[in-house]
Amino acid sequence: MKYLPFVAVLLGLAGPALAHPVTVQSCDREVTFDAIPQRAASNDVNLTEMMLVLGLTDRMVGYTGISGWNKLDADMRAGIAALPELSEKYPSKEVLIGADLDFWFAGWNYGMRIGGEVTPETLAPFGIPVYELTESCIHIMARDGIAVDDMFTDIRNLGTIFGVADRAEALITGWQSELDAIAATLPQQDPLRVFVYDSGEDTPFTAGRYAMPSAMIAAAGGRNIMEDVDSSWTRVAWEPVVERDPQVIVIVNYGDVTAEQKMDFLRNTPAFAGIDAVVNNRFVVLDYVEATPGPRNIRAIRTLAQAFHGQ
């Protein structure tokens, strides 16, 4: 994804901005913006990429929570070259206040922790409104499930907040067309059993029912074997992984342990020797920015569909 040319095209498509004030739903809150934010920041690589694809860097004063866990690829480096990283990992309240923010895009376990020092409530007295990543809302409220549409919701709400609603809708329309095209290629067969391996050797960190990979796997013709785990990103035991015998394992690539090292661990651990995916060496690697909600989800669904069905 090349941001600058794409953003230039979208600028040409953008119609008149919605008049402020505007109100959007953020988890269990309604948040009203009297004016378009001018000093915004985002947390994590995937949320920052949502800001970039909407062409909002001129409204941003920085970003948080990327280099502490992830390395930026060439597109991301180009997109945020002029912006400082305000904090390598989760920011403190003082960091955000010191940057004089008038908007922060974050989420629960994407920059904020329940009961932590940085939450919508603790930032409100300092005039910093927070828009929460939809996928993360499960940590503070009940939800029916996860869908790729949740990423569309975030793009649409950001478009409303920043007065680029037409730009947001153009993106969503294009992505939906891609999803429809992928769906049309899927064979009529039972969904493949799929396990998402993020990290961890003693106990694996994986995607449960409410994490975006569950929706992505379903859109690609598979079924997350941990879809009955009522959480988003969480730890499980290895025993149910072995018992449910995944046919494909999705490796989330980031951090100090490489994707190849994660695959080697699975291949070389005797307890996993009988797992269908290990026996047949069926691994799919997705970068963190592809496996978490963001613009690269659609491309990642195509990658999954090709890996699942050989198309």
Rank of each mutant, 00 (worst) to 15 (best):
K89Q: 13
Y90K: 04
Y90G: 09
Y90T: 00
S92P: 11
K93L: 15
E94S: 07
V95Y: 09
V95R: 14
L96K: 03
I97V: 15
G98L: 09
A99H: 03
A99D: 06
D100Q: 13
D100P: 07
D100C: 06
F103R: 00
W104F: 15
W104A: 13
F105R: 04
F105N: 07
A106T: 01
G107F: 07
W108Y: 10
W108L: 04
W108C: 05
N109W: 15
N109V: 01
G111R: 02
G116V: 04
E117P: 15
V118F: 14
T119M: 10
T119F: 14
E121L: 09
T122D: 09
T122M: 14
L123G: 11
P125M: 03
F126D: 08
F126N: 04
G127K: 00
G127I: 00
I128Y: 12
P129W: 02
Y131K: 05
E132T: 07
L133Y: 10
L133K: 01
L133Q: 14
T134Y: 12
E135F: 09
S136Y: 10
S136W: 09
C137N: 00
C137P: 11
C137L: 01
I138K: 08
I138C: 06
I140S: 13
M141Q: 15
R143H: 05
D144K: 00
G145V: 02
A147F: 01
A147V: 01
V148S: 06
V148C: 11
D149W: 05
D150I: 02
D150G: 12
D150Q: 05
M151T: 09
M151Q: 10
F152N: 11
F152C: 11
T153E: 12
D154L: 02
I155A: 13
R156C: 10
R156G: 13
R156M: 10
N157T: 05
N157A: 14
L158A: 08
T160W: 08
T160C: 13
I161N: 09
F162W: 07
F162Y: 12
A165Y: 08
A165S: 15
A165F: 07
R167M: 07
R167H: 06
A168L: 05
A168F: 07
A168I: 03
E169Y: 07
L171H: 05
I172K: 08
T173E: 14
S177T: 13
E178T: 03
L179T: 02
L179Q: 02
L179G: 05
D180V: 00
A181K: 03
A181H: 01
I182A: 14
I182C: 12
A183R: 01
T185A: 13
T185V: 09
P187I: 02
P187Q: 01
Q188S: 15
Q188F: 07
D190H: 11
P191I: 00
L192D: 05
L192I: 04
V194R: 02
F195A: 06
F195R: 00
V196C: 12
V196A: 10
Y197D: 13
